[in-house]
Design a protein around this nucleic acid. Structure first.
Lengths: 139, 139
DNA sequence: TATTGACTTGAAGTGCACTTCATAGTTTAT
DNA sequence: ATAAACTATGAAGTGCACTTCAAGTCAATA
C-alpha cells in the first residue's frame, strides 16, 4: 500500500495528475484508509503504468477512458477491446514512421552542418544559399 | 508561385496555420502580389515541409522559432544550430524508445487478447482476474 | 494548545497549438 | 449590379491535459 506521495514518486506523475486520472475514470476508484487518504495497491501502480504507457503513445485521455470502461466490464468486452488495441497499434506504427522520417532528416541535417563547419569558407554563408545547398546538394 | 490555397493543399496544412506560422516567424515573410495576396515559392514550400517535419517530431513552436531565427542570421550561427539539432536528435531518440516500449506492450496485449478470445472459458472473466493474468502470466 | 504536514475537495487557471470569427477589400461570373 | 470566390487582418475562441488555488479535515508534534 502506497500513499499518494509514494505513488507519485514511484510513477513519476504528480499527485494532482493521479487524482485527475481517477476523476476521469482512467483508474478504478482507489481504496481509502480511515482518514479518507488514498491507498494505492501494487495493482493500482501497475494500472497507472499501463496508462502512462498509453499516454506516451499519445493515446488521448478520452480513448483511454473508453478502453478502461470496457476493461472494467470484464470478458464480455474482449472483442471490442481487441479492436481498440488493434487501432492503437496502427496509430503507433504511423507515429513510428513519422518519427523515423524526422530522424532521417535530422541525421541529414547534422552531417550537412558537420560538413559546413569543417570548411571555413562557409562561415559567412547566407541562409538562402545554405538552404539551396541543403535542398539540392547530394548529402 | 502558389496561392495560399494551393500552398495549403500541397502541404496539407490550413491557410490559417500557414498564416499563424508566418506570424510566429517560423517562416520568412512570404512575398505578396499587387493585391497583397501571399505568393508561396517552391523554396517556401520546402521550408514549410521542414517545419512540418520538426512538428511531427514534437519540437515545440518556440524551439522551431529559435532555430529559424538563427538560420536566417546565416553562417555565423552554424555552431549554435548544430548544437540545437543535436539536442533535437536526442529528443527524437528518446521518443523512439518510448514509442518502441508502447509498441511492445501493445503487441503483448494483442496476443494476450487473441489467446483469451480463442478460449471460450474466458468470456466471462472479471477485469481483476484478467488483469492478474496479464501481469503475471508468461505471455 | 497551537501549529505543522499530509491529505481531501471542487473550481478555476495555465500553456500550447492552432481555429474560428468579424470585417473588409478585390476580381470574376451571372 | 449583385453575388460568389478568394484573400487580408486582428482578436477571440477552442480543446486538450494537466496544474494551481482556496478552503477544509485529521493526526501527530512542539
Amino acid at each position: 500500500m502506497y500513499s499518494a506521495k509514494e505513488a507519485a514518486k514511484i510513477t513519476g506523475l504528480s499527485t494532482a495528475t493521479l487524482r485527475y486520472y481517477e476523476k476521469e475514470k482512467l483508474l478504478p476508484p482507489i481504496a481509502r484508509n480511515s482518514q479518507k487518504y488514498r491507498q494505492y495497491t501494487d495493482e493500482d501502480i501497475e494500472w497507472i503504468k499501463m496508462i502512462q504507457c498509453m499516454r506516451t503513445a499519445n493515446i488521448p485521455i478520452h480513448s483511454i477512458k473508453e478502453y478502461v470502461s470496457l476493461l472494467i466490464q470484464g470478458g464480455k468486452t474482449l472483442e471490442q477491446r481487441f479492436i481498440m488495441v488493434q487501432n492503437h497499434m496502427e496509430d503507433i506504427k504511423k507515429q513510428m514512421t513519422n518519427l523515423q522520417n524526422a530522424f532521417d532528416l535530422t541525421q541529414k541535417k547534422l552531417s550537412f552542418y558537420e560538413k559546413l563547419l569543417a570548411d571555413s569558407s562557409y562561415k559567412n554563408i547566407s541562409y538562402k544559399e545554405e538552404w539551396k545547398l541543403f535542398n539540392h546538394g547530394e548529402n
